[in-house]
Design a protein around this nucleic acid. Structure first.
Lengths: 152, 152
DNA sequence: TTGATTTAGTAAGCAGGCTTATAATATCTC
DNA sequence: GAGATATTATAAGCCTGCTTACTAAATCAA
């Protein structure tokens, strides 16, 4: 019975579990805000960068445009954002954050910050930076665009 | 404009992106096997531990029993597993891996191993262990059961 | 200018998570 | 034993991803 690497503690499984745990906790605490973690992510980009086309949003979020389309549908219904036409290109719809989004921002950010603090409790100082460096590297190494890929 | 922590590079977002990247790549390469990453995970547990009830499987996978139920539906349809009654408890259905699963195991494991190597390229030696330690810590810190929680 | 190609957004339909609710069976308590 | 409580699996219906396929508009090329 040679089973050298124990796969159920592998990188992929641990990443999956950690991500799910963070998402679950965030949504538990943001229930009263009515904000899911995917929607929170959209708001962060919109509030940082201003109105964006759905295509740009898809790039920033690293998801497919169709996924953005339906995410924005629900966020528009919930009153977080609006779609407005682009004066220069009749194909594009600019997604604009509404007042409600600005109002909720600090609140949600606090939830996220507290969550990260809880998540990292007991780890040595500097662990956060090591961790985020590694994650950034993994994302680049597995991205489709071959920019800055390390080997082969 | 005080925006100290740049949230779109936050831990949660990076984890989400890295996890999605790994899942995508795995499924691209495992297409010919017809195995999704969630299904691969089920097989790992079944082949390591033998037949399991759906409830136990849910615990190991850290997902809800209803999610297991539908996952197993699809895996049964695809011929990876079978449900069999438990002789000692008529409520439980034991999930058993079929030959097809054993046959595909090494193949899928190789895909996963190659993927991790690619993901970690360019990181210092020891990064994998630091990373998995941190992820395990995060998972424990955010789990519902208060066992081994660090503070508060 | 016309015709081909590219880009932006969306519909349909699937996988994999979730919450809430239900039925059947075990188990615990009195 | 009988009744209350737990546990096991599942149904219904939602959210967020995906692939594939389509329309409308912009852009490139001849």
């Amino acid at each position: 019975m040679s089973c050298p690497p124990i796969p159920d503690e592998s990188l992929g499984f641990l990443l999956t579990d950690a991500t799910r745990a963070i998402r679950r906790r965030f949504e538990q605490r943001a229930t009263e805000l009515g904000l899911s973690s995917a929607q929170w992510r959209v708001l962060v980009h919109l509030l940082r960068r201003g109105p964006l086309s759905q295509a740009r949003l898809a790039e920033f979020l690293e998801i497919e445009p169709i996924s953005v389309s339906r995410l924005v549908d629900r966020m528009q219904e919930a009153g977080w954002v609006e779609r407005e036409p682009d004066p220069n290109d009749r194909r594009v719809k600019r997604v604009v954050a509404k007042c409600k989004a600005h109002a909720a921002f600090e609140n949600a950010r606090q939830i996220a910050d507290d969550l990260y603090e809880q998540a990292l409790a007991g780890l040595p100082p500097g662990a956060l930076e090591t961790l985020t460096d590694a994650l950034r590297r993994i994302i680049i190494n597995l991205s489709d665009s071959p920019e800055a890929q390390n080997d082969r």
